[in-house]
């Protein structure tokens, strides 16, 4: 397995993890876990098969494991600009409110629907690819996509009260 091929997939893994977990530190931890697990099993990866799909399936399985235990998933992490020069690249001021609306709406979509929304929108995977990746029938992919999109539409149009993310204490 070539390092450059893996390196090329990391940004996509990060994007998907960020979309699913919401916060940067937790998302990058998940990516790290995914890569570590991939290296322990890369003898099981068949050369020439789809590296991206393989990495995404590892990440999916890890996340399913993580969902079984409670986490402080709402911890948000960002830098102090006056102390540190690194500037967060997301959520540019003007869009911040909209982004927060969308993100809080997303948080209300069941995980199994949200992951399909993300794989379709961000990874632009076909329904058949998603079915293989998640190991579920295409019909299930379609019904989750349909319910997820409709629920997100209802929340964004204000038909469902948008509850704010609450911090777990």
């Amino acid at each position: 397995m070539e390092s450059s091929a893996i390196l090329a997939e990391i940004p996509r893994l990060r994007r998907y993890a960020r979309a699913m977990l919401g916060n940067r530190a937790a998302a990058d931890d998940l990516v790290q876990d995914t890569l570590e697990r991939a290296w322990t099993r890369f003898d099981k990866w068949r050369a020439g098969s789809n590296l991206r799909a393989w990495l995404f399936s590892i990440m999916h399985n890890l996340r399913v494991d993580q969902l079984r235990r409670p986490t402080l998933s709402t911890l948000s992490t960002y830098s102090i600009n006056e102390i540190e020069n690194e500037i967060p690249t997301r959520a540019i001021q003007a869009d911040a409110l909209e982004v927060r609306d969308l993100e809080s709406a997303l948080a209300q979509i069941p995980d199994e629907q949200r992951e399909i929304l993300m794989l379709v929108a961000l990874e632009e995977m076909s329904y058949a690819e998603i079915s293989t990746l998640l190991n579920i029938p295409v019909g299930t992919v379609m019904s989750r996509l349909s319910r997820g999109r409709e629920k997100l539409r209802m929340i964004m149009e204000g038909n469902v009260p948008a509850t704010k993310l609450r911090v777990v204490r």
């Binding site: 390092s3 940004p11 990060r14 790290q32 890569l35 869009d95 993300m118 929108a121 997100l152 964004m156």
Partner: peptide, 27 residues
């Protein structure tokens, strides 16, 4: 919706990779 999701999350693709992730591209 689809466009909004892309607009929100695509910028992650351009963020610099943390060193711990970059190093994991190799065994």
């Amino acid at each position: 919706q689809k466009k909004a999701l892309q607009a929100v999350f695509n910028p992650v693709l351009d963020e610099p990779l943390p060193e711990n992730l970059r190093s994991l591209a190799s065994p």
